[in-house]
Design a protein around this nucleic acid. Structure first.
Lengths: 422, 422
DNA sequence: CTGTTAGCGCATTCAA
DNA sequence: TTGAATGCGCTAACAG
C-alpha cells in the first residue's frame, strides 16, 4: 500500500498535463517521501511531527533529518480533512476605513493567533453576493465573527449558525446568536449629561438612529439624559454615514435651517467635519456651538479645540470575539446574554469645557475590560492589564459606569495612547 | 464501497469519545449523504455542485433538493486536498494602525475576492516566533504577500519562496523575490524642491533613513533635491517611528538644539505631532517653520494649516499584490523588476503655500496607477486610467513625475476622497 | 448523461 | 516503540 503510494509519488514529480501552477501549490514532499527517506513508516513521521513523544530519540532524529533534507512542509488541507477542523476563524467586516476596524481586527487576530487559529478576512463592501461569499468562507473556517448586523444578512447568519459558531460584534443581537459589543446607551447618556451640564439646552443628535443598533442605543442615551432632567429632546438630524455629510449638516446650520448650541454626533468623523466647516465659516466652537463625537479617532486629539468623544475598547472587543469563538468551537455553550464592554468618555474642549492645560493627566487605563468566563478545559485568558476571573458576576450587561477622562489639547497626545500599544 | 461509507456515516452521527466540538466543525452532511438522498452517485452530486452542466435537468433538481434538505455544505479542506490548492492567499502585515494598512488590506482583499481567493491575515506585531507563524500560514495558502521587509525575516522569505509564490510590498527588493511598491525618491525630491521653492534653505529630514527602505528612498530624494540646486543637505534627524517621537523632536527645536525653517518628515503622524507641539509653544507654521509629511492621513486635511504631504496609491498596491500572486499561482513567471506605482504630492498650507481658497479644486484623480502585465490566459485587469508595460525601460523605477495637487484647508475635504471610494 | 474507482496527504486506531 | 491499515470528503479520470 505504502509502496504503491511511494511509487505514485515518485512518478508524479511532473505529471503530464499538470501545469506548473500545481507545482506552486505544493512541492512534492509528503509524509510518504519523508518516511521513505527516513526508513520509517508514515505513522512514525506523523508522530514525531506532532511531538507525540512516543518515538525513540534516534528515530526521531532520522525523521527530522529527512524532513529538512526534503524541505518538507505538511499540507494544511490534508490535516484539516483528517482532524476535521480547520484551525481558522472567519471574520466578516463591512470595510476597513478608520481606526475602529483596524483595532478590532488587531484584537481579533492577536487573540486568535494566541489560540492557534488563523484568521481569514472577508470584507463585504463591494461584494455582489454577500451570502455566497460568506458560505464560501464558511467552508474553510471553524467559526465566524461578523461585525455589525449589516455585514451579514440575518438569513445567512441564521443558516450558518446551525453549522458553525457565529458571533455578532457590535450588531443587533439576534435570537440564539451570541454577540459582544461596547456599551452605548449609558455612555451616551453620560456624555449628553456632561454637555447639558455646560448649560446648553438645544442639543441635537446628529446621525441616524435607525441606521445601526449602536447609533440607536446612543440616541436612546441622548434621550434618556434629557428626560432625566425633565427636558424634551429634539428630533435627531438624520444623516447617513457617508463622507461629506458633515459639510451638508454644517451648511444647514449656517443657513439657519437648524439651530442648536450643541451637537452630539454619531461618530468623530462626522463631528470633526462639521466642526471644521463651522469654524471655516467663522463660528466659534464651542463658544457658539459645542460639538462632540464618538470613537476617539486620532484626529480628535489634534484639532482645536480637542474633540470630546467616547472611546470604545475596540481591540478588546475583537479579542473577546476571537476567544468566544474558539471556546465555542471547543464545546463551550452559547452565551445567551450579549457581552457588553465598558467605554470611556473622553473630555476635551469641543464640548464647552475650557481647555486650560492642567496637571499632567494620568495615563489612560483600560477600564475593567473583563474576559469572558472560561469553560472548563479552555485555554487561559489574556495577560494581566485588566481584572479577570471567569465568574459571571453581577453586572454582566452593564459593566461599569463609563469612565471619564479630562484631556486637553495636544501637549502630549501620546500619553493617551500608551495603553493602546503593548 | 459507497455503501460502506454510507454506513460509516450513519453510524458516526455521534461517535463515542468524540466531543461535541467536532460536531461544530462539520455537521454530518457530505456528498455521500446527498447522493444517497438524491438517489444518484457522488460523482453526479459533485458535478451539479460544480455546475459542470453535464447533468440532466431532472437529476440536477433532485440533487439540489437533497442538498438543501440536508443543508449540505461542502468541506473546504476536502476540496483543497483533492484539487491540490487552497484558493487562498496569505497576507502578512506588521500591524494595522493608521489608514495605510487598512487601505492596503482593502485593496488586497477586494482584488483577491474578485479572483476567487480568500485571504488569511497574519499580523506579526506581538508574535513571538514570526518564522513559525509564517510557516504555519504557508500550510493553508497558495501564496503569500508580505508588507515591508521587516515583517518577514529574509531567511523565511527565501525558504518560502521556493515553495509558494511570495511578493514583498513596499519592502527592500530581495533577489529573486517579486516586489511592488510606491515611488518614493522622485516624489520626495519634488516635495523637497517645492519647499526649497518657498525660499527655505535650512531643511531637515526627520525620520530614520536606515529604518526602512521607503524612508531611505525618500531621504535620497531629499538629498537629490538639494544637490540639484547646489545645496548641501543637512544630516537627517533620526527618529524611530514610535508615537510620541514628534513631541521629542519639537522639544529639541524649541530648545534650540535644532535649527531649521522647514521639516520634511518621514510620515504624517510625525509631522502632525511636531506641528501641533510647535504651535502649542507659540510657533507659527509655516511662518516660522514649514512642516511636511507623507501618507496623506485624514488628519492632514483637518489641521490648520493643512498638512502638505504625499499620497501613495496604497489600495492599488494591495490590489496589485493580490493580482500578481494569483497570476503566479497560475503559472505566471516571476517579475524580476519591482513594480513601482506613482504617488501624488498633495500641497496644502503647511509647506509655506498661502492657503487662500481658490476656485474649486478638480476632483483628485488616481494618477497613472498602472496594472501589471497580463500573462496569457490571466483574467483581465482593472480599468484603464493608466499606461503600462513591463519593459525595463528607461524609467522603470520612476513611473511618472509625481503629480501635484494644490489643496486648501477643509472647506470641502471630502472632495479629496472621492476617488478613494468605489 | 451517469456510476465506479482511485487517490489527495495526513491522523489514528489496532496489532505487533 | 513502531508499522499496517483505514478513513476524512471531494475531484477526476475512466467506463458504461
Amino acid at each position: 500500500m505504502a509502496t504503491a503510494r511511494k511509487q505514485a509519488q515518485a512518478g508524479a514529480t511532473t505529471p503530464p498535463g499538470v501545469s506548473v501552477a500545481h507545482a506552486a501549490a505544493h512541492n512534492g514532499a509528503t509524509i510518504y517521501s519523508v518516511a521513505e527517506r527516513a526508513g520509517v513508516s508514515i505513522a512514525t513521521v506523523s508522530r514525531v511531527l506532532q511531538g507525540a513523544g512516543t518515538v525513540s530519540a534516534k528515530t526521531t532524529q532520522k525523521v527530522l533529518d529527512a524532513v529538512d533534507q526534503l524541505d518538507y512542509v505538511p499540507l494544511g488541507a490534508a490535516r484539516s480533512l483528517a482532524v476535521r477542523h480547520h484551525e481558522a476563524h472567519g471574520l466578516v467586516l463591512p470595510e476597513l476605513s478608520g481606526p475602529y476596524y483596524s483595532e478590532l481586527l488587531m484584537g481579533f487576530e492577536s487573540r486568535a493567533a494566541e489560540l492557534g487559529q488563523s484568521v481569514t478576512l472577508m470584507l463585504t463592501e463591494g461584494k455582489a453576493d454577500i451570502a455566497r461569499s460568506v458560505r464560501q468562507l464558511a467552508t474553510h473556517v471553524d467559526a465566524i465573527a461578523v461585525l455589525g448586523s449589516a455585514a451579514m444578512p440575518p438569513a445567512v447568519a441564521k443558516a450558518l449558525h446551525g453549522k458553525k459558531p457565529v458571533i455578532i460584534i457590535a450588531g443587533a443581537p439576534q435570537d440564539g446568536i451570541e454577540s459582544v459589543g461596547a456599551e452605548n446607551a449609558h455612555s451616551a447618556q453620560k456624555l449628553t449629561e456632561h454637555v447639558l451640564g455646560h448649560g446648553r439646552r438645544h442639543l441635537l443628535f446628529v446621525g441616524d438612529p435607525d441606521g445601526a443598533p449602536d447609533i440607536s442605543d446612543r440616541h436612546a442615551g441622548f434621550v434618556a439624559a434629557h428626560r432625566a432632567q425633565g427636558l424634551e429632546p429634539a428630533e435627531p438630524v438624520r444623516v447617513p454615514f457617508r463622507e461629506g455629510e458633515g459639510e451638508a449638516v454644517a451648511e444647514r446650520i449656517l443657513a439657519g435651517e437648524i439651530t442648536a448650541d450643541a451637537l452630539v454626533c454619531a461618530n468623530d468623523e462626522l463631528a470633526l467635519s462639521i466642526m471644521s466647516h463651522l469654524q471655516d465659516a467663522g463660528r466659534d466652537v464651542p463658544g457658539d456651538i459645542a460639538v462632540v463625537g464618538w470613537d476617539d479617532v486620532m484626529t480628535s486629539r489634534y484639532v482645536r479645540p480637542g474633540m470630546t468623544t467616547v472611546r470604545q475598547p475596540v481591540r478588546e472587543l475583537g479579542a473577546l470575539a476571537a476567544e468566544r469563538l474558539h471556546q465555542r468551537v471547543h464545546g463551550a455553550e452559547l452565551l445567551a446574554a450579549p457581552r457588553v464592554l465598558p467605554t470611556q468618555v473622553i473630555i476635551r474642549g469641543s464640548c464647552g469645557c475650557d481647555a486650560r492645560p492642567s496637571t499632567p493627566h494620568p495615563p489612560a487605563r483600560p477600564d475593567g475590560i473583563r474576559p469572558p468566563p472560561v469553560p472548563p478545559g479552555a485555554p487561559d485568558l489574556r495577560p494581566p492589564t485588566n481584572s479577570n476571573s471567569p465568574t459571571n458576576s453581577t453586572n454582566s450587561n452593564t459593566p461599569e459606569a463609563p469612565s471619564y477622562h479630562h484631556l486637553h489639547p495636544p501637549k502630549s497626545p501620546a500619553r493617551l495612547e500608551e495603553h493602546t500599544r503593548k
